[in-house]
Amino acid sequence: MDFLSPKEIEMIQKGILETLYMTSLSTLFAYFIGLPLGVVLAITGKGGLKRNPVIYSVLGFIVNVLRSAPFLILLVTLIPFTRLIVGTSIGSTATIVPLTIAAFPFIARLVESSLKEVDSGVVEAADSMGSTRWQIIWKVLLPEARSSLLLGVAIATTTILSYSAMAGFVGGGGLGDIAIRFGYYRWQQKMMLITVILLIIIVQIIQELGLFLSKKLNKKRSDG
């Protein structure tokens, strides 16, 4: 293959791995925070299991503030915090910090809306059987919402992936980094094209996988 030099191929391979590494770990960490936060939002919000307008509006406010900050700005603002945690603000490991912070509020809203889709009659039935709130969360809300939650994971992952490409501007590693350094700064259109195509392929795979699993796990007909 003379289209790409061995060095370029090696670089692209490394880029793919870095992108997958950043995206998957950031998604995982963002769910650690976003999932419980989404559950709390869903149960303290309107029509929730344990309504609490104070908790709901305080958490909602924090989520909205973080969500309205543009990712690039957040990325730069968080540099001192990232240094504190990882020791550096450059490279793919460092990028995981701002990615996680940027994604968890978004994920919390995704989780909240998935849980709100669960039929209130089913929750009432569980209530009538003497379920504790904890049991309703673990055994009713989350399992009943699982296919919607899974679609949410696919959406969250692809969003994080596109954020990770933006991190290339501050030396974040991954495919986005390559696109910016070679495709943009040196105007090598070949590299630009390759990275963009690779990003599209990865997004497609994640999206399709999410859809497939979500359908497979859903025992409720698609009409309801």
């Binding site: 399992p143 009943e144 296919s147 796990l217 025992k219």
Partner: peptide, 8 residues
Amino acid sequence: HFNLLNQR
């Protein structure tokens, strides 16, 4: 409306 758990 029966209110069965749809995923069970």
